[in-house]
Design a binder for these strands. Structure first.
Lengths: 116, 116
DNA sequence: GTCAAACTACGATGGTTCTCGTACAATGAA
DNA sequence: TTCATTGTACGAGAACCATCGTAGTTTGAC
């Protein structure tokens, strides 16, 4: 019960200028996180953490979403009991033109090549 | 003195089909390695490890080159006392079209943005 | 108020990574 | 053979990371 002020459930995000390529690459170098990003991209909008059927527990899922958020790859907001995540397409495309699309294409190709 | 057989100084590389996107991204998510890759790309050919002026010791440099080689990003061969490294452009461009160029461009932009 | 759903915080654990220093091996030149 | 150059192997330490389980918070529905 935080008296007057705004919703206390605010999540810290790096501003655009703080996003670093190394952090983005590190975030995407984990299979679970790469999968999350691919699903977010193919959906295009906001998805709740619970939407994903990942091979890890809930607390590990929380960890992976935090890494994605803190590296600047996704933006997260609370809505009710859910936490919605969406790709930060604008920021990423502005900082690193073509990178996200090329990366998603690379992931698709590899999925095909290795048999889903 | 290895009796008859071929040069014992052969370095293990993943074949093209074994190269995994996650490993490539992980390899490039370290600042020292990203810098090595950028220099290799701008040179275009083979460079000796000793060519690089990196902020780490020689043994750490060896470590970083091994990560790059084992992830499939560079190919390394011995020539005399030197070990030459070159980007595996063909393999990477074949597996992940456009990825390397987009990544190098992203690194350049970031270097400009953050002031060299 | 009670309850279930969605997510988090915390601590722990086991593995990996980055870093180093020292000692060593391979090569080519003098 | 001796020597300098180039890179490696090995061991170690510190930091980081992915994972989990348990206990807790926040929210909305009943």
């Amino acid at each position: 019960m935080t008296s007057a002020a705004a919703p206390s459930r605010e999540l810290p995000h790096p501003v655009r200028a703080e996003i670093r390529l190394e952090d983005v690459l590190h975030a995407l170098s984990d299979p679970v996180r790469l999968r999350i990003v691919c699903e977010l991209a193919s959906d295009g909008g906001e998805l709740a953490c619970s939407h994903f059927d990942l091979p890890v527990t809930k607390s590990t899922t929380t960890h992976h979403f935090r890494v994605l958020r803190e590296s600047g790859v996704v933006r997260q907001v609370y809505r009710g009991t859910a936490k919605l995540s969406a790709l930060r397409r604008e920021a990423l495309d502005d900082l690193f033109p073509g990178l996200l699309d090329t990366l998603l294409d690379a992931a698709d190709r590899q999925a095909l090549r290795l048999g889903d």
